[in-house]
Design a protein around this nucleic acid. Sequence first.
DNA 1: GTCGATGTTTGCAACGATGGAGAGCCATAC
DNA 2: GTATGGCTCTCCATCGTTGCAAACATCGAC
Lengths: 336, 336
Amino acid sequence: MRTRLKDVAERAGVSVKTVSNVVNGYEHVTAKTRSQVEAALVDLGYVPNLAARGLRNGRSGVIALALPELHAPYFAEIAHHVVRAAADRGWTVLVDETEGRLDRERQVAAGIRAHLIDGLILSPLALTAADLDGRADGVPLVLLGERVRHDVADRVAVDNVQAARDATAHLLRQGRRRIAAIGVQRSAAGASARLRLQGYRKAVREHGLDLDPVLAVPAAAWHRADGAAAVRSLLELGPPPDALFCFNDLLALGALRALHEAGLRVPDDVAVVGFDDIEETRYSTPSLSTVSPAKDGIAGTAVDLLVARLAAQAGAPSPPRRVVAAHTLAVRESSG
Amino acid sequence: MRTRLKDVAERAGVSVKTVSNVVNGYEHVTAKTRSQVEAALVDLGYVPNLAARGLRNGRSGVIALALPELHAPYFAEIAHHVVRAAADRGWTVLVDETEGRLDRERQVAAGIRAHLIDGLILSPLALTAADLDGRADGVPLVLLGERVRHDVADRVAVDNVQAARDATAHLLRQGRRRIAAIGVQRSAAGASARLRLQGYRKAVREHGLDLDPVLAVPAAAWHRADGAAAVRSLLELGPPPDALFCFNDLLALGALRALHEAGLRVPDDVAVVGFDDIEETRYSTPSLSTVSPAKDGIAGTAVDLLVARLAAQAGAPSPPRRVVAAHTLAVRESSG
DNA sequence: GTCGATGTTTGCAACGATGGAGAGCCATAC
DNA sequence: GTATGGCTCTCCATCGTTGCAAACATCGAC
C-alpha cells in the first residue's frame, strides 16, 4: 500500500491539509511544522497520487503527442524534442501512433484520452480541416505540419513551398538543369507533397526552365524503399537527370542507394538534396544535403502554444495561431 | 465543460450508477433503459474521465516506457513496438527520456509518476541492481537489456554473449583473422559492452586465435561519430584489421564512413558486422550485416510481463522472471 | 487586559467514477 | 393471496487531493 497524505499527517501529528500545504510549498507554515512534516514525508517515502491530483485540479500535467510512426527518424527526432521541451516545462508526454490512418487521427483529435491529457500535439497525415471543425470544446490542440488548413487550430510548420524552392534553387545554382522531384503524391494525405512540388516548380520556372513531367516522380510512401524504386523507374524511362530533389530524407537515402547500384556517382553525375535533416544524412555515403527544419524550435513552439492555450482556457477563445518554423539548407557532399 | 455521468443520468432520467453500468457493459440492465442511456450518451458526447476512473480503480491504463533517448534508431524502434504492443492490449504508453543519467533512471524507477502509471518498462544504462533493491512496493517493473542483474525485476534481453559470439564466428568463417571489436567500455554503464566483448573473445579463442589487445577499441558513446573516431584511431595504430565487429549499428555506420574515407573497401578489405538491425542498415552503402534482436518480441514480452504482474499484484509476490529474446544474424553486403 | 490584525492550521466539500448493500418490482410457485 | 426469489435500479461511501472559509494562536497596540 502506498502512503497517502493522511498517513503522513498522522505520523507528523498535523492535519492532512497542512501536509498538503507543505508538499505544495505554501508560504504560511512555521519552520517547525514544516520540518516535522518533511521528516514524515521522507520517512514514509510519500509520492503524490497524480490521478487524484489530476481529478481535483482538472489538470494531469500530461500532454499527448500523436504521430504516424515513431520509428521513422524524422518523427523520432520530433518526439525526442517534444518530450524534452515538455519535460523542461514540467509536462509529461504520452505517445500515440496513428499510422497515418484517418480513423485513428480522428479518434485522438476527438479526445479519446479525455481528462488523462491536458492537451494534444498532432502530426496528421490523413486528417482534414472538416474533421476538426466544431471541436471547440475539446482539449487544446496544436497541429504539426502544413497538411491541414491553418484556421482550425494552432499550427507550427515550416514553409514547405519556400523550403522546396530554396532546395531546388540551390541545385540550379550548381548548374543542374534536369532536376527530378521525387515523392509526388496525389492522395488526400499528400498535402506536404503538393506544397513541396509547388516550391520545386516555382524555382524551376523562375530559372527560366521548362517543367518536364517525366521528372515529377511519384512515391506511394516516403520510405527508403520508395525512394529507391522511384529512381529505378526514372532511370528506365530515359536519360538520367543531373539532380534529384527528394521530398524527404528517407526517399533521398533510398535514392542514393539506387543511384549507387546503377553506377551513377553522387554528386558528380547526379546531385541529391533531401528534406528533414535526420541525423543519418550526416553519415551516409556520400553525406546528404537537405532542408533542415528547426526541429527543436518546432517542438518547443508546439509545447509553448499548448501551454498558452491551457493558461488561457478560462478566458474567451482566441483565434488559432499559426507559427512558421525556421528552416535552413544544410549543404553536404551529395550536392557540394 | 465536459459531460459527466451525472449529466447523462439527468438526460436519461436514471441514476448515475445506471449510466455507469451501461458504460461498463453491466449485464442486468433492461433493453429499454439501456437504449435510453445510450441515446443520452451519444447526444451529449460522453467521454469517461480517465483521471476519476483511475483514482477509483487504482488503475490508469497507462504504462511508462523509460529509455535513454528516443532519437537513437534502436530505441525509436523499440518504442514503436512497445507502443504498438501496448495498444493491442488496451494500454497507453507514456515516454520518459533518461539520457542514460543515473539520477533520472533512479527517479523513474522510484515511481516518480506514481498512480499515473500502472507499470514501467525501463531500459537502463547507468542503473545498478542496488538501486532497485527494496522497491518491492513500487509499480511493477520490467527491465530491457542485460545491464542489470536479473534477480531484481522481470527482464527481457537477448543473450548478448551468445549473439556477439555468433557475429564474430560468422566473420571467422568468412576467413577473417584480424577482427577488431569496436565499442569497448569500462564504465559502469558499459554492461552491454562487457558482455559483447566477452562473446567476441570467446569466439576468437574457440577458433584457436590469440587476442590482440590493440583490436579492442573503446568508444565513449555508441553513436555514429564514435564509430568513425574509433576506426580512425585504429587505422593510425598499425595495419588495418580485416574485419570489424561493432557493438551496435550506429558505431558500424560511423565505421563504414571512416573506412570509406580511408579508401578501404567493404567487404573486400574489411568486413563489418553491427548489432541491433536498425532499418538504416538495409539501405546503407554497403548494406550492413548485423545481429538482429527480435524487437517486436522483446516489446510484446515486456508488455505481457507487465500485464501479468498487474494481474497478479493482489496475490503473493512471485520471483522475477527472466526472458531471453531471440536473435538472428542478418548477413548483408558488408560481410557477404 | 482587551481588541484587532496577522499568521497558521484545520475541517469540509468537491473533483467524477465505481463497488457494495439494499430497495423496489415483477413473475412464479404454493 | 402470499411467500420466494431474481432481476433492476438507486443510494451511499470511497478513492487522494486541494480550494475555501472558518477557527485558532500569537502578537503588538491601546
